[in-house]
Write a protein that binds this DNA or RNA. Structure first.
Lengths: 190, 190, 190, 190
DNA sequence: TATGAATGAGCATTCATTCAT
DNA sequence: TATGAATGAATGCTCATTCAT
């Protein structure tokens, strides 16, 4: 196995263990065992538990972003793109985390580096969603005077909360993406 | 000071310290000092650090819920209620936490007990927002066939993301609650 | 036991263990056990193993110096003072260290702080021995033109090497302090 | 490079690193890098770090002894021999160690083997100095009844302390070997 | 009841040593 | 023979918890 590969194996193992147990309850021994290597080997590739956490966290942001970027950059219409985005988010939530955990936060681990990285990716997502709104306007699906920030927030709310609940109660077949998009387009008012 | 009062003093002190430092970096000595009492005294009222965290977390959910319940239970129209709710959330976000931290989660501390409690309050919020949607339908402001889950998710998305960003960049005066509600009512589509 | 006393108990225990095992082979657990306390307690009084070593080393210099100063400051004649000094050194060597160890040194632990402290006490000893030489000149026992540095070095050589060997081979009764002093006074030449 | 030569390269490299960093702070990786070889190669020639230390220490004693033996075995008079010895010691102190470090000792590394070896060489030095004293007696420079042990200790004191201080304060040109020897011969008394 | 000095279980990290290449 | 990636035993230190006062 190449040096790069082993590094990636450790990153993946670390992300799994950190997600499952949290930073403080995850032992370096757990990460090593999960990766099928010795404890000391981790330190050949990473300086400390903290930096391993940061690297694995950022690596995961990158991987997730690469997957989702292809959706945003694909050459399809507004509605299809939004539908694909929501479908992807549904699957992502399924494998990655539980709803409740996404609401909880502890300041402790959020180093400047990780905050910056997180904000960077959030900004990228945000930017993509903003571009999607603009595309919708160009395609004459959305109103010209639409407030992109508000609409993006609604999309995020749906992807985090509505889909999150469906994941939690395992009601995938109840999700009607057509209805979601219609709700956004037509509004809830009379 | 009565026994009940001292318990509450400890709970408040604990919540402050846990929010500021996170569970693992908060020392029992910090909580005691912040409460102006001795370390040993905490153990007269709570079994362990973990249970103190849980109690303080749930206590805070209760306090927050009591504040917001009065909004939902007030005798005002749909639009005013929704506006008041969003305004309250804005202030809450301002004092409680930063945007980025709300996105991050570590599984470690989320015991079944705390998850259940959290879900209970989420369900209460959810229920209130659902009732609010029903009120909107009764007041003929919303369509009869509105999907409450989707609308509630949009409201949550706005309160967590849109307001969160405004808090983060301290742009309170930019928030146009009228426009937010109009967006929800009329939709973003042509 | 008072706080000061417990501190001293730990210092004494630490000095014993460090002298016996050396810094790196002495475990904090050894020091604690030797002092009859828990490991954690040491950290109530000292910041780290390193600082415990330094404090115990310096403390020992102080104690040794206090003992020997009383000899130098006593109101007796040159010869008696020199005899007492050598007798004291003999006993000190007996309980403190072996000859061979005094020759070996490893730079590692010698922090600036400890070096300064050591040099300070060496300078004090040196100064006392110089004053002793001056006293000898005033008492007309020593030549006026005596080179104090050379004579002090000879005294140190005798106290470290000659007495050290006697300690090592446990030949206390062979030591003839009279002869030693006569040798210094009359020289070895014809 | 022959096997013997590589062994010697490692021994030299090891001695340098051990003297500079001390046993515990010297890493095998340091020794290997300093010798320009791989870590594993050291283990082709030495069993362990401990044995490498012992071998390098003893090897250095041998080298130092070989240098000084030639002085003692040269065919010159007592005074010249003593002067040459002191001059050699001065240079040796200059390159090998600082004064303070020579006073400090930590028991840890002094295995029986190394102690024995050290004592052996000390005994050799001692023996040479004793022979030198006898030569002085034969040459009628020293008194017949001179106590060799005391005189040797004085010489050692001068070489370790007096010369050590001169090295430390870089006052080589202040050393008056003539005066030192006269002091030893005539004594310090009236 | 209130305290804080004392405790020791628990873990990140280092580095001498091994062994497949 | 020479290498250095991989290993895991070993230990300093932290801090929740206890309990004598």
């Amino acid at each position: 196995m190449s040096e790069i590969d082993k590094r990636q194996v450790i990153l993946d193992s670390a992300f799994q263990v950190f997600m499952k147990k949290g930073f403080h309850n995850a032992k370096m021994a757990d990460v090593a065992e999960n990766a099928g290597i010795g404890k000391g080997t981790i330190y050949e590739y990473f300086d400390s538990k903290k930096s391993l956490f940061e690297e694995s966290f950022i690596n995961n942001l990158e991987l997730g972003y690469n997957d989702i970027r292809s959706i945003f950059e694909s050459d399809i219409c507004f509605k299809d793109k939004l539908t694909n985005y929501l479908k992807f988010k549904y699957n992502y939530l399924s494998v990655q985390s539980s709803l409740a955990e996404n609401f909880l936060a502890h300041g402790e681990l959020v180093s400047k580096r990780i905050k910056d990285s997180f904000m960077l990716y959030m900004a990228k997502y945000y930017n993509h969603l903003n571009l999607l709104v603009e595309q919708g306007i160009r395609e004459m699906v959305l109103k010209d005077e639409v407030d992109a920030e508000i609409m993006v927030s609604c999309i995020m709310g749906i992807s985090n909360n509505y889909l999150g609940i469906k994941v939690l109660f395992k009601k995938e077949n109840e999700i009607d993406y057509e209805k979601i998009i219609n709700s956004l387009l037509c509004g809830f008012g009379k």
